[in-house]
Design a protein around this nucleic acid. Structure first.
Lengths: 223, 223, 223, 223
DNA sequence: TATGAATGAGATTTCATTCAT
DNA sequence: CATGAATGAAATCTCATTCAT
């Protein structure tokens, strides 16, 4: 992903499918792969489909990627690298862990909600075998989860989050909630922007499903 | 699937084709498929692998299933049907929606935690293409989600859950949290029983991450 | 074929598809095979299709026929045997070779025109491989051709046919003409009865395409 | 097929895909298919047999032909197209319909007699199912039959053929006679050249089997 | 005799990958 | 760097045949 929008990466928008062709064949092919994989699924996609979508010859794909697997691998790696860097940069200036968590949720859903193809690859195609997933969960994905966990632990330390909560579990629940919102959004195909789910989801995760006295709850809602 | 919820099988109308002596080739093959798919992933599994695992000839698989796809389809359909029936039966006698929700979470994680192969198929292989997922999310899976949503709405009606929460979103967050716990459990491969996550997750989902006055929280203690 | 209508064979009509079931499983299965082969072609027909059409179990077919090939083989052998016997009986009382030839043509087209399925097998399926055809042409079929040739030679001897014609070639032309009429009739699927072609074809074969003095031509038209 | 009428190829628009140096893989594979199909029959031939015979990899066959069926289909289509074009060119300069008919018969038997493999495919394999035959008889083959019929009708108009003969039936008889000569030749496997049958067959078809006054018959024999 | 479930060899076809140009 | 024709391994699925009941 790093390469996908290398020139404009610094701190703004993530690479979108609209910026095409301007970053060389590598990115063109990766973009094409995202589109093709999203459309047909990884296993039902042919390398020649990707090549055609990218406007190159079949053989050319192999000049930039080791093999078909490497295509999927690169999409996810580069996408996640870019996203994590983006998130880090975005939350660095925020002082409140709660605000940081909200920002992560927002960026997470915004990133996926902006490009359905990308979302499909990220939500669906990423799970193409336990081995593939293990590869990611232990490398890239856990980097993201660690980032979230850090924020949660920070929040517990400063009293914004309940200290008695297991931070690792909170991390998974947080991630799982966002993940499911995204998966559902992909499948429902309705026009509603995914990012609209940020506040309701956060409200639920922060204050819980059970009714409760609210007077002592922090009001950091800055949306 | 017959065995998937073995404890309650007696009265269930489980989809066994013949219910012969050793439970029929249908189930034997399905069991084998779960194991093989979990081990190698659906696309990397050969029908002959399934046949060998089941101890039948390759062609025999096609006497019981239309094709390889039907194998995966049947696993998930039968598994979900059986699970949903099981859940319905289990929560029916419970009067408190909160207790029902807790029971669902418990059964959900217990079911998956009991059979890692099954969990892998359910968590990973189910996502084999958007088309496949759409098929399920609109049929079987949404039946499960509807069941959860019903419980949540009941809870809101009787005042056990906050009325101002969007029940559909709560459903997704609840399901997403459990789903992620299961996925993580599969990948971590540590011995910890998955069902152990029920209480921490429920605590978080019920009372939220944010600190709050607890005196008014309902005490509907469980286990 | 001998068996197809064993009881009624003596000298009348050939076995038709309407007389079914009354001659035991052997005939029932052969009848079914004719229908199925005519419908789908030999290679695209499954033994189980034949069994179903005959209303017996797959295995039963093998109690009456050695294998699938034997089914086709038997259809043609029995059909031809029966037909040739029928032809012999029919022309025996006729004293004029020309009248005999006319009768052969009539029976030939009538037999095929009466049962399109049978005609399809005879015209199309019989040619399923050079080996298969060689088998027949040297055994059964040449018996029929020899019969025709005999009639022609008789005719030459008694002066009804031109002596300078090569009888073998005349036989082939005669047979080829009838054969093509039948093939065309099968494919055209029009309602016109095949037997209607007897007179025009005979006229052509007897008197030729070229105009000629007719005064000396024999008038043996007895239709 | 390109080679099927090699003598006249120069100016023909023969269906060679690329006309490269060695005439292209397309034709090589088609040639191989003719040989293999003639040897074993279409259904008993494996695509890999064709590939081996052609000296290419199995997959290569599928770069030039959609599937196995397309192989047979292409053989016959291209063969017939080429043959019909050849016939048209050959009879165009002839003014007498009788001479044209004779030329058609000669070319017909010569074409098949030149290449036994081709003849086998044309006489035997073409009949691989009623559907297949219908496809051809209504398209390609009827083009040939129409051509013959045209010549016969021309001949009737100029008085070379008897006007009272049904031209369509004469066409079928003519074609059927040639067809049977060819089929027989294939099966007899004797060395006699097939084309030797032209004159005897024509004599029979023109002047008939019945004896007749000859003085008025036209003498257009120009062979 | 009759059944039909089970077998398993085998063929078509696909497609990731290579490599000569 | 780029091409795309060629490769050939591999996998799904079919179906004739068998045999225990």
């Amino acid at each position: 992903m790093a390469r996908l929008a290398a020139t404009t990466r610094t701190a703004d928008k993530l690479p979108t499918s609209t910026s095409k062709g301007e970053n060389g064949k590598h990115d063109t092919i990766l973009r094409a792969a995202i589109k093709v994989f999203a459309r047909n699924g990884y296993f039902n996609s042919k390398v020649s489909d990707v090549a055609r979508e990218a406007g190159v010859a079949d053989g050319t794909v192999y000049l930039y990627f080791k093999n078909k697997d490497d295509l999927l691998f690169s999409i996810i790696t580069e996408m996640l690298d870019s996203f994590i860097a983006h998130v880090r940069a975005a939350i660095a200036p925020l002082t409140s862990p709660l605000a940081q968590l909200r920002e992560i949720a927002r960026l997470h859903l915004e990133m996926l909600g902006r490009d359905r193809d990308l979302a499909v690859v990220f939500e669906v195609e990423i799970r193409h075998s336990t081995k593939f997933m293990e590869e990611f969960s232990t490398k890239k994905l856990s980097e993201y989860l660690d980032l979230i966990q850090q924020v949660i632990e920070d929040g517990q330390r400063v009293g914004e989050f309940r200290a008695e909560i297991n931070a690792r579990i909170a991390t998974k629940v947080f991630f799982g909630a966002l993940d499911e919102m995204a998966t559902n959004w992909i499948l429902s195909r309705r026009g509603k922007p995914l990012a609209g789910a940020v506040e309701p989801v956060l409200d639920l995760l922060l204050h819980g499903l059970a009714p409760q006295a609210r007077h002592s709850a922090p009001q950091l809602n800055e949306a």
